[in-house]
Simulated assay, not measured.
Amino acid sequence: MTAGTVLVVAVPAAVIGAASFGMASAIQHRVTKQVPEVATFSPRMLWDLVRKPIWVLSIGTVIVGLSLQVVALAFGPLVLVQPLLVTSVLFGAAFAAWLAGRRMDLVLALGALLCAGGLAAFLLLARPSGHGSEFTGAPVLPLSLAMGLLVIASLLAARWLPGEFGVVGLAVATGVFYGVTAGLMRVVAGQFRTGGFVEPFGHWTLYVVCVIGPMGFLLSQQTFQRGRLMSPSLAVITTVDPLVAAAIGVSWLGESIESSPAILAGEAVAGALMIGGIAVLARRSEQIGRELAAREDSESWG
């Protein structure tokens, strides 16, 4: 595959796909505010949302984005495509600001850029290689426990931490669910390629995906509903998702990443950038949320 093909096909597909994801997220963030809040993982929320035509349209936009992501990955390497897809955070922030009739906040944009840049740097340094689509026989329990504990801790943080800091907890849990879904979908796709349409139905992987995937999507809608602003939620989800998927690829599917001391040091810096970006987004969103609440209170009294 020539470099020209990558530039002509993969890059535009990834960028337009990122714009599609960003637009869908902005719409969903707005529409979820129009339905009653429910308990975590309650499917009642989807029943309320599906009666909103604009929300149904956003699902079509997600499908377009996923299709373009597949095209981009078919013609370009992961280390190029994934960082471009993470720009959905910037597109989403721009669309959300436009829908709300306000200007895009530069501090939120900086936080989103730190997340996207940190993830891009991590992937470029790690250079994940291999196309693992089968379990290697390596123990799955350690990583499973780590992800399970991370989800539990994140949901507890979402329950007890105030404001946007609690929203970050929900977003982390959503990112883990999405990352597990993406990692296991590689296995399902491999089973389909080798055994045909029926083959995946004979393995447990497909059934786990059918449970974890919808749970992650439902949790994402609840994350958008709770967050006053969209940028922190989307930035955290799009950062955690590929990291969890990469961990599954390396730990369970035999993929590899660069791990020399210099590379590990660079990856640590990239991780610090991502954490810093998330902290900037959460703090700034909390500040803007207080300002908006104060403005609404003054308008109601006025």
Results as ranks from 00 to 15, higher is better:
4 G>N: 12
4 G>F: 04
10 A>R: 11
11 V>G: 02
12 P>S: 07
12 P>F: 00
13 A>G: 07
14 A>Y: 02
16 I>F: 14
17 G>N: 03
19 A>E: 04
19 A>V: 05
24 A>E: 02
26 A>D: 05
27 I>G: 02
28 Q>R: 13
32 T>G: 05
33 K>N: 08
37 E>C: 08
40 T>Q: 15
41 F>S: 07
47 W>P: 01
48 D>L: 14
48 D>Y: 15
53 P>Y: 13
54 I>K: 12
54 I>N: 08
55 W>N: 07
56 V>E: 05
56 V>Q: 11
58 S>H: 01
62 V>M: 11
64 V>T: 15
64 V>K: 02
64 V>N: 07
65 G>F: 03
67 S>H: 09
76 G>H: 04
78 L>A: 12
79 V>G: 06
85 L>F: 13
86 V>A: 15
92 G>N: 10
94 A>L: 13
96 A>Q: 09
97 A>Y: 06
97 A>P: 11
101 G>P: 09
102 R>T: 04
103 R>I: 11
104 M>P: 06
105 D>V: 00
109 A>E: 03
111 G>D: 03
111 G>C: 08
113 L>P: 09
114 L>Q: 03
117 G>Q: 04
117 G>H: 06
119 L>K: 01
122 F>L: 14
123 L>F: 14
123 L>R: 02
125 L>V: 13
126 A>D: 06
126 A>M: 08
128 P>F: 00
128 P>K: 08
130 G>N: 10
132 G>Q: 02
135 F>E: 11
135 F>M: 10
137 G>S: 01
138 A>L: 09
139 P>S: 11
139 P>I: 09
144 S>V: 04
149 L>R: 10
149 L>H: 08
151 V>H: 06
154 S>T: 11
157 A>S: 10
158 A>S: 13
159 R>I: 06
159 R>H: 14
162 P>S: 12
165 F>D: 02
165 F>R: 13
166 G>S: 07
170 L>R: 15
170 L>A: 10
172 V>T: 05
177 F>N: 00
179 G>N: 08
183 G>W: 03
188 V>D: 07
189 A>T: 10
192 F>Y: 13
196 G>W: 03
197 F>P: 01
197 F>M: 12
197 F>E: 05
200 P>T: 09
200 P>A: 07
203 H>E: 08
206 L>Y: 02
207 Y>G: 12
211 V>W: 14
211 V>P: 09
211 V>L: 15
212 I>W: 05
214 P>I: 06
214 P>Q: 13
215 M>I: 09
218 L>W: 02
218 L>D: 00
219 L>V: 05
219 L>R: 01
222 Q>I: 01
230 M>L: 15
234 L>M: 09
234 L>V: 00
242 P>D: 05
243 L>V: 05
244 V>G: 00
244 V>A: 06
249 G>T: 10
252 W>Y: 13
252 W>D: 00
253 L>H: 02
255 E>G: 10
256 S>E: 12
257 I>W: 00
259 S>A: 14
261 P>R: 05
263 I>S: 10
269 V>A: 14
272 A>P: 07
272 A>L: 15
273 L>Y: 09
274 M>P: 00
274 M>E: 03
275 I>D: 02
275 I>L: 15
277 G>H: 03
279 A>I: 04
280 V>E: 03
283 R>C: 11
283 R>T: 11
287 Q>I: 04
287 Q>D: 12
288 I>Q: 12
289 G>R: 04
294 A>S: 14
294 A>D: 15
295 R>N: 13
297 D>A: 15
298 S>F: 13
301 W>D: 14
302 G>W: 04
